[in-house]
Design a protein around this nucleic acid. Sequence first.
DNA 1: TTATTTTGTTTAATCGATTAAGCAAATGGA
DNA 2: TCCATTTGCTTAATCGATTAAACAAAATAA
Lengths: 347, 347
Amino acid sequence: MPKRAALKDIAQKVGVSTALVSYVLNNQEEEKRVGKEIAARIRQAAADLNYTPNQIARSLKTSKTHTIGVIVADIHYRFTSGVTKAIEAACQQLNYTVIYGSSNEDPAKFARLVHLLVDRQVDGLIIVPVMDCKKEIDYLHRHEIPFVLIDRIPPNVEANIISIDNVKAAHRSALHLAKTGHRRIAFVSYQSGLLNLAERKNGYLAALAEAGLSPDPALIKEIAGRRPADGVTDRVTDEVKQAIDDLLALSPACDSIFFATDTLAVEGLRHINALHIPVPERLGIVSFDESEAFELFYCPITRGRQPLADIGRIAVDTLIDTMHHPTTKKKVLLGTEFIIGKSCGET
Amino acid sequence: MPKRAALKDIAQKVGVSTALVSYVLNNQEEEKRVGKEIAARIRQAAADLNYTPNQIARSLKTSKTHTIGVIVADIHYRFTSGVTKAIEAACQQLNYTVIYGSSNEDPAKFARLVHLLVDRQVDGLIIVPVMDCKKEIDYLHRHEIPFVLIDRIPPNVEANIISIDNVKAAHRSALHLAKTGHRRIAFVSYQSGLLNLAERKNGYLAALAEAGLSPDPALIKEIAGRRPADGVTDRVTDEVKQAIDDLLALSPACDSIFFATDTLAVEGLRHINALHIPVPERLGIVSFDESEAFELFYCPITRGRQPLADIGRIAVDTLIDTMHHPTTKKKVLLGTEFIIGKSCGET
DNA sequence: TTATTTTGTTTAATCGATTAAGCAAATGGA
DNA sequence: TCCATTTGCTTAATCGATTAAACAAAATAA
């Protein structure tokens, strides 16, 4: 196998300098006034030799890699794979390549990834931030590396952010439970400093207030652990079970649950199923996000669906934008779609 | 912002040549007999300047990128995200970076991706092949680029392959339906030249034979379109509906369905639900793969689960292996776990 | 005819690291 | 004392492309 042809080889074959070859193959023949006949011969030779430019060499010289780094929490989340799919599609159109890594919610791993990708000279980053990522964000700012945060909004951070309007979406979900006659509405979320969960809680509380219901701390359950790596979900699973058992034992009884994420809802429904609690008769349910399970559950789950494809696409657009105009700081809050199933009873 | 420090800067600061700096920072001080005191000063300077090597330059020189390319069908498939997660975890351990792209089952896109990743000089590839990928496989062979195929086994191809034993898994699934008293067992799959689906069919047929049931072409439904990009699933959805309607109208009646993939099962169950067909009383169900929905369905679905994490991990191991010993051609067929739900009735 | 502009091409530096080969000084052996 | 080794470091080529600057030849202007 002869090794890959380089510019030099084409130059040699045609009998010109590499400069000319470079000009022609980059379609600069006009500006650089390359002879028509020579240009044609160069193209021919390039085709004959099956030439493809060495991107590494090009990157070294131009310090542009045409690559963007994507740091997600866990590719196995529906949110993540949905958004990632859209990111990649958008990048493919723009001729960008995607390097990907997942933090698994671990700040140390997150930090390593940021540095790794920066060392690999990505032109920009799309990041699902973890807790305690202020240092890395600062690092990116200092080094003037364009980036966009998605999904979560870390506190006290200036940056491009693409997310959804969590307050509004949560408000709508909780209010729907109230409107369908529920009075003791529980909120099950993760314990986390991430602003998006805090905002979902705010939306929930606002809805209660609007419906004239008084908040009850006993109805708010915040699960300590994020779903750990590698399917070892035991801890979360157990805590969710406990939370639901607690809720069901309350008096006055809890009559409905608003799950702040799809993963929590799936865990919760599994347990509710095992306990043979009828939905929506005994317990009304609303969840955030999407899951195949929500439609196939005997009682289709009412839920707020995030526009995953939009988030991904807009994240890429915004990133490309900042790459050209580094000063722009965009904050985009997208709306969610509210899908009414049967898990809250009839309206 | 001062620009990133290079080897040259360290050399200047310490007052030595870049060669020495390179030796020290690559821990070759012993072989290259670098003075102890100088070595220490070099390390100190590197730390002071916050030096990180420019991977691009290193790659250009060594023509190793420490990057592997992953080409999948669709990251939003559970199979894909599960395997990808394991691939990335393994790569992180070995200090490899993952570049990722999805073919969306489109041979043209697949071909473009292969060339793109090869141009980016990936050290190796992990690939979920599409139909008609013989040309690209040959290309990789010709250029001596190490790669591993996963999930699907294209016909007439010599390569490292990590997959599951589809015949065996399908055989077991179909046989389970027979053992639970079903006599008119349908097989719903995709129409595709991919060998793994063909093998699942073979397993199904073998099980029928073993159970003394005669195969009936009317019970075999092969859906034409793969799930198209971007959630536009209408065509597949409609076809699945039609297939199930057809099956239910048969006489003698079809009493059970074996779905060859999770996506088909989810589509199918949605329709079965809408028709209020009771599972397992009227219709026994077995599926391939996993879905959150299978557990939350009112009647937990009996299924064969692929060892996604193992597939990913072994794919990486095998790839690293071939990178060092290019001649090895491994073919690994993993076993599947058979999870008995309630969708076939009692044993 | 000479000066100027235009056209077409080459030269050579550069990006940042790696690494074979070369060289000088110190050490050791006879 | 003289030659051979060892030690410690530098030089310079290289990977493959980009691109400013220099240059020569031809065309045009004066």
